[in-house]
Computed example of a mutant assay.
Amino acid sequence: MTNSAPPGSAAELFERAAPTYDRTGVSFFGPLGAELVRRADIRPGDRVLDVGCGRGAVLFPAAEATGPTGHVTGTDLAPAMVTLTAEDAARAGLTQVDVLVDDAQRPDFPPRSFDAVLAGLVVFLLPDPQQALRSYARLLRPAGRLAVSTFAAQDPAFDAAMAALAAHLPADQARPAPPDDPFADETRIGATMAAAGLTVTEIGKHRIESRFRDVGHWTEWMWSHAGRALLGRVPAERLDAATADAARALDGARTPDGGLCLRTTIRITVAMPATSHQG
């Protein structure tokens, strides 16, 4: 891991997560990435940008869809994520892929560079999602597609476990609060996209089941992604108690074999530049 990311920043969080991100044996990011690529209708020869590419859950299915005649650029703000994903692409012999350090909110590419821009579970994490969407609209060719995935519904047991963890934060720390979500429902999504110069062509939902051997496996998975932002704020002396409370909250997700199954619903929005839609 490099130390270039500012302490406490999103880049530092994902820099620390990079070695285990999507590498804990949990079916989550991979199936969601493949579905995002499918909904975006990536075609052979397309030039594609994958913002916030992580360890390639969207990047690699997109590369398969474009084939060797296309090109896929993945970007991430965490240098370690970029390094590891670039190594994975090289090992796979994907000459049509490159991976760069870049900001998902302000991608640094010329206008109309891409046939498709893909954003898998990233836009709502950015400081200004609206600005990011305007940037993506600028990067699309006239008939280009933007495909974005956002959360539609978490498993109730997951929400309960997160609340159990948050109850162990120091009294002087703010508890996680639901943000003002520009992707909360189809009406808001349409308005959000329109304000960015985009016209929605499709909004669909995709449900996935993620299975865990036990609570320890779930905790390992939480440390491997953005969930570590909450876990990392729990004082070390309270972590065991917090995890025990989270385990009780997850009882509703128990499976007959003693494992856990969490069901997550993702919303996938596909949009085009408004001018091309009108034309």
Results as ranks from 00 to 15, higher is better:
residue 196 A to V: 10
residue 54 G to V: 03
residue 107 P to I: 02
residue 190 G to L: 02
residue 239 L to W: 11
residue 152 A to G: 13
residue 270 V to I: 13
residue 61 P to C: 02
residue 156 P to S: 02
residue 228 R to S: 14
residue 3 N to K: 05
residue 70 G to S: 08
residue 195 A to S: 11
residue 116 A to Y: 00
residue 262 L to S: 01
residue 277 H to M: 15
residue 69 T to G: 04
residue 223 W to T: 10
residue 263 R to T: 15
residue 132 A to E: 08
residue 217 H to C: 10
residue 133 L to K: 10
residue 177 A to C: 13
residue 135 S to Q: 15
residue 237 E to V: 11
residue 253 A to T: 02
residue 129 P to L: 06
residue 179 P to K: 03
residue 79 P to L: 07
residue 160 A to N: 11
residue 27 S to A: 15
residue 191 A to Q: 13
residue 93 G to D: 15
residue 4 S to W: 03
residue 34 A to Y: 06
residue 65 A to R: 09
residue 126 L to K: 04
residue 236 A to L: 10
residue 218 W to C: 07
residue 254 R to Q: 07
residue 129 P to Q: 03
residue 25 G to C: 01
residue 257 D to P: 04
residue 260 L to H: 00
residue 171 A to H: 10
residue 83 T to I: 03
residue 244 A to D: 14
residue 173 Q to W: 06
residue 72 V to I: 03
residue 53 C to D: 04
residue 96 Q to P: 09
residue 13 L to C: 11
residue 80 A to T: 14
residue 205 K to N: 14
residue 167 A to Q: 04
residue 65 A to M: 11
residue 82 V to C: 10
residue 231 L to S: 03
residue 185 D to R: 07
residue 39 R to G: 10
residue 128 D to W: 10
residue 150 T to G: 01
residue 140 L to M: 02
residue 8 G to A: 02
residue 136 Y to Q: 02
residue 53 C to E: 05
residue 137 A to G: 15
residue 209 E to A: 12
residue 70 G to R: 07
residue 118 L to T: 01
residue 148 V to Q: 12
residue 46 D to N: 10
residue 122 V to N: 07
residue 132 A to M: 08
residue 90 A to P: 11
residue 262 L to P: 01
residue 129 P to G: 07
residue 249 A to L: 04
residue 5 A to L: 09
residue 256 P to V: 03
residue 185 D to N: 15
residue 225 H to C: 14
residue 39 R to I: 14
residue 11 A to F: 02
residue 19 P to F: 09
residue 143 A to W: 07
residue 16 R to A: 15
residue 245 D to M: 01
residue 219 T to L: 07
residue 19 P to W: 06
residue 19 P to R: 05
residue 264 T to C: 03
residue 258 G to P: 11
residue 221 W to D: 05
residue 93 G to H: 12
residue 157 A to D: 13
residue 159 D to Q: 10
residue 208 I to V: 14
residue 196 A to I: 04
residue 167 A to R: 04
residue 30 G to S: 14
residue 221 W to A: 04
residue 279 G to N: 13
residue 64 E to I: 02
residue 157 A to Q: 15
residue 75 T to R: 05
residue 207 R to G: 13
residue 169 L to R: 00
residue 161 A to M: 13
residue 100 L to N: 06
residue 217 H to A: 11
residue 152 A to F: 12
residue 53 C to Q: 03
residue 95 T to W: 08
residue 58 V to C: 07
residue 41 D to V: 03
residue 19 P to H: 12
residue 271 A to P: 09
residue 134 R to H: 06
residue 231 L to M: 09
residue 88 D to C: 06
residue 59 L to S: 06
